[in-house]
Design a protein around this nucleic acid. Structure first.
Length: 342
DNA sequence: CTCATTTGACCGTA
DNA sequence: TACGGTCAAATGAG
């Protein structure tokens, strides 16, 4: 939608490479006695770099997928063009042991958590919450102390059938009602089943009756690859007490290569609050959040958490174990596949 | 009829 | 005890 952006694979790769290079620098800073500020700056540059890469992917995808493009004219059920979100993923510590991670029901506190900030563009209509490609079921709503808007609680639709314990919380920002803060908890273990992405012509709700009927396999693959990619590229920061994972990638960003249809639930926030349909990117907004994080000890447990997180996604397509020692683009990553850039 | 949402109650934690 | 998170019965939509 608000594209008009000229993008090309080289640009994307350049951004990614830059991000890696910055990560290297950051690593050097970690070993040295550099100031927190310089680390912070480096980290923000890394995030910005990946964010730009993501935007490229997003727009690239939306431009390349003819179906449902342009259905942005405020039709409530129209596919949402998720233009991503400002990525301010914060990772709430915890999931140290990869095993306990799968048992989300046991220890909620140990599940990975990261926050996504999604901005809606007011001129584009009011509803249709951000669809990250997963199927969510709302299970609660609470008024939060000090918050103007209630918080909505969602869990994976396939919680029971697939034992998928991913949840998310959606809260409208106090300061800017156009911004929604989405906190994800846990990762989907149903991602490879029926879970992935609603087919363009079928609203999400149809999923309940047509599981596994998405026949656009290539598209799925690309999306999954991107999803895995973004899931793999997480930067861990460690708080004094907790670890945090800061990811420049957002779930919605992973669908740039295809159209998201979202029938989503109409209860994104609360009946009293208008529901955003279209999302625009606020690329650097994440700095507001990430910048506030304690960036010390950035590296500790980095690879451990990465691998944990990666394995949790069951990703057979891309294996991007992203570590600071190994920051080369995986040649297997289908950056050049047609479904990706076109 | 099936499934999603709503919403008050309940529970665990700080 | 207050608050955030979850449960589950009631209700509604398709």
């Amino acid at each position: 939608m608000e594209s008009g952006w000229c993008w090309e694979p080289q640009t994307l790769i350049a951004e990614l490479v830059q991000g890696m290079e910055l990560a290297r620098q950051l690593r050097a800073h970690l070993n040295a006695t550099s100031s927190v500020e310089s680390r912070d700056e480096l980290l923000q540059r890394i995030l910005a770099s990946y964010e730009r890469a993501l935007l490229i992917l997003n727009w690239g995808g939306s431009m390349g997928q003819p179906q449902n493009v342009g259905v942005s004219a405020g039709v409530p059920e129209s596919p949402i063009s998720i233009n991503g979100s400002s990525r301010s993923d914060e990772f709430d510590g915890g999931f140290k042991d990869s095993q306990g991670y799968n048992e989300a029901s046991k220890k909620r506190k140990t599940t990975p958590r990261w926050t996504d900030h999604v901005r809606v563009s007011p001129e584009n209509g009011l509803e249709g919450p951000h669809d990250d490609g997963y199927s969510w079921r709302k299970y609660g709503q609470k008024d939060i102390l000090g918050a103007k808007y209630p918080r909505s609680y969602y869990r994976c639709t396939y919680r029971n059938t697939k034992n998928c314990w991913a949840t998310k919380q959606v809260q409208r920002s106090d300061e800017d009602p156009n911004i929604f803060e989405i906190t994800y908890r846990g990762t989907h273990t149903c991602a490879h089943g029926n879970q992935s992405i609603p087919s363009p012509s079928s609203p999400e709700k149809q999923e309940k009756k047509q599981k596994n009927t998405n026949n656009n396999y290539q598209q799925q693959q690309s999306q999954q690859a991107l999803y895995n990619f973004q899931n793999s590229l997480k930067v861990i920061t460690e708080d004094l007490d907790n670890k945090e994972m800061v990811s420049p990638f957002s779930f919605p960003s992973a669908y740039g290569c295809s159209k998201n249809v979202s029938s989503y639930s109409p209860s994104f926030i609360s009946p009293a609050t208008p529901e955003p349909t279209h999302y625009s990117v606020s690329p650097f907004q994440m700095n507001n959040f990430v910048g506030a994080h304690n960036l010390q000890h950035l590296e500790s447990d980095f690879t451990e958490i990465i691998s944990t997180n990666t394995s949790a996604t069951n990703s057979p397509i891309v294996d991007l174990d992203f570590s600071l020692d190994q920051v080369e683009l995986d040649p297997n990553f289908p950056l050049n596949t047609p479904g990706f850039f076109s």
